[in-house]
Design a protein around this nucleic acid. Structure first.
Lengths: 111, 111
DNA sequence: TTTTATGTATAAGAAACTTATGTATATTTG
DNA sequence: CAAATATACATAAGTTTCTTATACATAAAA
């Protein structure tokens, strides 16, 4: 991610949420999707993305299927069952995080 | 911070926002304030806090005043002028970040 | 009297990221 | 047609941020 420090730590959650939503995606597709959703504000770099995907796979949260499309390699990732469970809990954590950050930034609205 | 990865990168912004709001605070006070605001969900550790304060000071964003209260040392920090400017821009970044994360988590609400 | 709270500090290590580089094919543009 | 851009994956070196552990010191509570 080529962005403000704030995005540090949120990459895994972003990946898992997108996979939960779209069934299966390949790496490059994820970067483009995030760029589209955030109107170009968040750009995931390959140096962050691919190691993250590999790690999630190693942890058993993602499955991978390799395919050749237009003579180019694609690695399609999807959530495993435990990945789906984990995604639910990470999204809950994200909501808590956002709520807490909003409490700090906008204390008047927090009660 | 002894929490989910999500908080990585947000500590400086939290510190600066609190200092902007409260005029001046000392380290321990900041940890307690954050704990209070987030109802115990976010606990800033000393190992994260003090190096962060020292770095912000070294960058010219904070000023420090040492005082002895009840025979115990306190280091009061406050924003410098450039610290105030920087706080405004970091809070704007934080709002953008939150907006982007919400677009990802809740795509149906984003248009 | 021992633990907890208050108050600051640093050092070693882990984790996530940036930056740079590498490989390869397909498409677009000048 | 050649060069640049887009598509697609990968890794290695270095930086930053944080966790964990430790250290010192005083005050209050159990």
């Amino acid at each position: 991610m080529k962005n403000s420090q704030l995005y540090k730590g949120s990459l895994n959650t972003i990946i898992m949420k997108l996979l939960g939503e779209n069934g299966r995606m390949y790496g490059y597709e994820i970067t483009q999707k995030v760029k589209e959703i955030t109107k170009g504000e968040l750009n995931i770099t390959e140096g962050a993305l691919y190691p993250a995907l590999h790690k999630l796979e190693a942890e058993g949260l993602l499955d991978v299927e390799v395919e050749k499309v237009d003579n180019r390699l694609r690695k399609y990732y999807k959530l495993t069952e435990s990945g789906q469970t984990e995604t639910v809990s990470r999204l809950a954590e994200l909501e808590e995080f956002i709520k807490n950050m909003q409490s700090i930034v906008n204390p008047k609205l927090s009660y």
